[in-house]
Design a protein around this nucleic acid. Structure first.
Lengths: 251, 251
DNA sequence: CGACCTTTTGAACGTATTCAACCGATGTGG
DNA sequence: CCACATCGGTTGAATACGTTCAAAAGGTCG
């Protein structure tokens, strides 16, 4: 809880990387939710506090007073909400150079809980400061707005996923989205470790953990992926894209 | 298409009405998606163009260049997206004093299509102008951010609905949400005309139109609502809230 | 009035869930 | 370091829920 490590990080500034969201072209299966990008280490015009977060630890809880948004420096996070009837749902997963905590701006309180899925580090971006900076610099203001708007668009992607895809399609979209995001970070598009449990994946995709598990097996049998615990290799990306495409249109 | 009526409307400015989103207290079944509020007719500091939109007519199409956001002056709108595989989904319905078109800010293009569900009128808010105003006035900037953030939170509400509720709960949440929004506008909380078809409701709720129709009948049989075509009377609000509450928790 | 669209309802079906058992991996403490 | 407890994951069988296909009635609009 105590702001742990308090070294300083130079952060050029928020920067909506177009490479991550190739909307113009094919964005099938992009599942849109790509996360918000921050240019973490470029020319340092400002320096912000960093904070270490241990696996399982929360960055903030639903209802906490909103004060800052967070950029993932390293590690992996999930943001989840709980409604009044006790229903829980993961609203998103966030990896390096993505932002979370924006949901707090509206009401002055975070409406979800953000927790680290592994030992991680974040950059704390006090929102008041961000607003002040945006006030002075029109370009920065535009970036800030683009940032918020992208989170809106990400939401639309998730709605699409939850509202109009069947289980197989959802998982395929999920993998393709992860793949794309890893590529943007210079990692392999086809090999990665899932930091979240089947249960958390299911929560995000609106499915039960057993269903997710079965789908993993199904995809494995179809030769689309290989799975060793949390390690996933995508064997046939085109095949995954096919899963998405086939059901939507007439073959 | 031509900007039809071009009278001027005085618009005090964007104004996030807290009455519409009683998050602090009970927000069960609020289904969050409450829509963004604009104080349409208060003290007029600015005047914006209005535009009439006939039933079925589009305000903008997915892919159109983004230039403005829109405030509903009268009437009813839906915003829907289509993904690359042809899947369609309604992302939201908007009524008087609510804003739509925010999804375009991020990419510079609208990612959905907005259409009127009845003859309507909107106020056109050129976004460049909004940004300029926000640049000059910190309070306005804050409101603008709150506005965008509320759309993010609305999205979370819809995700919750689509990801963790069963059909009955979704429809109950939908009715309660509508009811609340009508109340905020001074209309009856329990009597209203649905401007959208069962099909559109289903699309929004991630259900098929037949399912929606059956749920209407079910709710009628349970004595929760009365239905005469598109006219709906909520007979038992507490009952509807119960539908939401029961499944989430242990009774 | 007639054509079309929306809605309702029934019956069969398919998909995801539930309940349950089991296995494997991980982590802790003796 | 091993034993044990726990957690996460897999798989099966029965079930429930929502969908699909189909038919028909009711509304609406030209």
């Amino acid at each position: 809880m105590a702001a742990g490590g308090s070294r300083r990080a130079s952060v050029s500034f928020i920067h909506a990387d177009r490479a991550i969201d190739p909307r113009g072209g094919e964005h099938i299966g992009s599942e849109s939710p790509v996360g918000l990008l921050v240019d973490l280490d470029a020319f340092g015009s400002m320096s912000f506090a960093r904070r270490r977060v241990k696996r399982g630890e929360a960055v903030y809880h639903a209802g906490d007073r909103f004060s800052a948004i967070y950029a993932v420096s390293s590690g992996f996070f999930k943001v989840g909400n709980v409604d009044a009837a006790g229903r829980e749902q993961v609203m998103g997963f966030f990896m390096r150079a993505e932002l979370f905590g924006l949901d707090g701006i509206g009401a002055g309180r975070y409406d979800g809980t953000a927790a680290a899925l592994e030992d991680s580090e974040i950059v704390v971006l006090p929102f008041a400061l961000m607003e002040a900076m945006a006030q002075e610099d029109a370009a920065m203001q535009r970036q800030l707005h683009a940032l918020l708007a992208r989170e809106i668009a990400r939401g639309h992607g998730v709605m699409m996923l939850l509202g109009s895809m069947r289980a197989e399609e959802r998982l395929a979209a999920f993998f393709l989205n992860l793949s794309r995001r890893f590529v943007c970070r210079g990692y392999s598009p086809s090999e990665f470790h899932l930091r979240m449990t089947r249960q958390e994946i299911g929560s995000y995709l609106g499915l039960k953990l057993e269903t997710v598990s079965r789908l993993f097996s199904l995809f494995r049998e179809k030769g689309l992926i290989e799975v060793r615990q949390k390690h996933v290799s995508i064997v046939d990306i085109a095949g995954l894209e096919g899963v998405l495409r086939d059901h939507g249109r007439e073959a």
